[in-house]
Design a protein around this nucleic acid. Structure first.
Length: 210
DNA sequence: GCCGTCAACGGGGCTG
DNA sequence: CAGCCCCGTTGACGGC
């Protein structure tokens, strides 16, 4: 799983703009028209205006909402910056905002949305990978079931396994699998009547310890 | 008209 | 407590 880097960027602040603050009331305004940077869209900033006239106000006194579309150049620079750092420190944010003629809050929002898109893409890729893996396991499971059926059909007597402890053959019927930890264990009742079992093999009782 | 995309918002959690 | 981030959502817009 990829972890987004939080290291500082190499970008440095070189220009400061007086009065270019980001007070909460300023940022949380539902209308972007009152923001001075948005009143006169520069040639580098492209606005898509709704059907409402600029001067028209809504019944509740709010100004109509406009939709900002970043220009290709702005998007390119933001993407370029994103490849270097997935997060920005305040200086980098201010610097980018000045460079792109956007508000720092817009830079911040763009990076948040960009990180979200990255994560979504990553999740979709992981989903695809898991789907393929599931398909592979399903196919493998099918083949193993088929193999088991073929072995059962051979009817060559009771199957035996070699004990890893004694290196002697064990009747497979004496083996069971613990449903909790899925470890192969010996059947106690059967083992007691069998002389094949060696003392090294411990009986296993499923418990909460598994 | 529906749907996908994207900028923006609001709330909650975390941290120094 | 300010500042930041994440997350879910909203609203505007474009494409079909």
């Amino acid at each position: 799983m990829a972890v987004l880097p939080r290291s500082p960027s190499s970008l440095e602040l070189t220009i400061s703009i007086p009065g270019f603050g980001s007070s909460p009331t300023f940022l949380h305004s539902s209308s972007v028209k009152e923001l001075d940077i948005n009143q006169v869209p520069s040639e580098e900033e492209e606005w898509v205006v709704s059907n409402m006239e600029d001067e028209e106000e809504l019944s509740n006194g709010d100004t109509p909402r406009k939709k900002l579309r970043l220009t290709k150049e702005q998007s390119r620079l933001l993407e370029e910056s994103f490849t270097q750092n997935h997060t920005l420190n305040p200086k980098q944010k201010e610097c980018l905002a000045t460079q792109l003629k956007l508000r720092p809050r817009q830079i911040e929002v763009w990076f948040q949305n960009r990180r979200a898109r990255s994560k979504l893409k990553q999740t979709e890729m992981e989903c695809e990978y898991l789907k393929r893996w599931f398909g592979t396991l399903t196919e493998q499971n099918r083949r193993l079931h088929k193999e088991v059926e073929e072995l059962r059909a051979m009817k060559v007597g009771p199957p035996t396994v070699i004990s890893p402890h004694s290196c002697e053959p064990l009747p497979a019927s004496t083996l069971t699998m613990c449903p909790r930890c899925e470890r192969v264990t010996t059947n106690v009742a059967t083992n007691l009547s069998s002389k094949v079992v060696t003392p090294t093999l411990q009986s296993h009782q499923p418990s909460a310890a598994c």
